[in-house]
């Protein structure tokens, strides 16, 4: 297994091509749930979990259904349906077997069934790893790593942002810039800072 490439994918998707700050995926939860640290953390956990799960599921759909029957053009349709229904299934499962856990992040699961970051990671996986006829375990490992690390990067940025916004509550912001506009400006400064990672070469 080429560990070097795996590491490169992981670092790239966490820092350099961060889903929120440089790919602009999942902005709705980023702006919506980043007001306080605790919900932001649970949201991040839920997204990481769903991204990893949907990476595995869409890998299976693509390599066992779409490619053998040459119906790759149905990718959008099938991915969305499979992701949405399996997240619902997982949600019901958690609700039934672990109500305490469901109370903590069940609502977030419902919110992200068709989040663009989740669907985006599936599409990116299929463009990067699944299109090339490769051996199956190798592409599965790459998909899972990319899905998991995209979630980790998402959680990290969400946490950082919520920390800043908790402080921002106490600041004297011009009235018309309050709320969303100032959040975007903060995000812009953060994204500028993250551009520093672009210099790294592996």
């Amino acid at each position: 297994m080429d560990l070097n490439r795996l590491l490169m994918v992981a670092i790239s998707v966490i820092f350099i091509n961060n889903f929120i700050l440089s790919k602009f995926l999942g902005l709705c939860p980023f702006i919506g749930v980043s007001k306080k640290t605790e919900p932001a953390f649970y949201m991040g956990l839920a997204v990481t979990f769903v991204m990893t799960a949907s990476s595995i599921i869409t890998w299976a759909v693509y390599s066992f259904l779409l490619r053998p029957f040459h119906i790759e053009y149905l990718r959008t349709l099938s991915f969305i349906l499979v992701i949405a229904s399996s997240v619902q299934l997982i949600e019901m499962f958690i609700q039934k077997f672990n109500p305490a856990l469901y109370k903590v992040f069940g609502i977030y699961l419902a919110l992200i069934t068709t989040n663009c970051a989740v669907f985006g990671v599936a599409v990116l996986n299929s463009e990067m790893f699944l299109k090339v006829a490769d051996n199956l375990t190798r592409s599965l490992v790459f998909c899972v790593v990319q899905g998991f690390c995209a979630g980790v990067g998402f959680t990290m940025v969400l946490l950082l942002m919520s920390g800043i916004r908790e402080r921002l509550e106490l600041c004297n912001v011009p009235r018309s810039m309050k709320g969303m506009p100032i959040a975007f400006i903060v995000a812009s400064l953060m994204s500028m800072a993250f551009m520093g990672f672009m210099g790294f070469r592996f």
């Binding site: 018309s176 810039m177 975007f184 995000a187 812009s188 551009m195």
Partner: peptide, 15 residues
């Protein structure tokens, strides 16, 4: 680049 997009929409919304 990415920061410019966030900056522009933040300022436009504020405006």
């Amino acid at each position: 680049l990415a920061p410019g997009a966030l900056l522009v929409i933040g300022i436009l919304m504020g405006f």
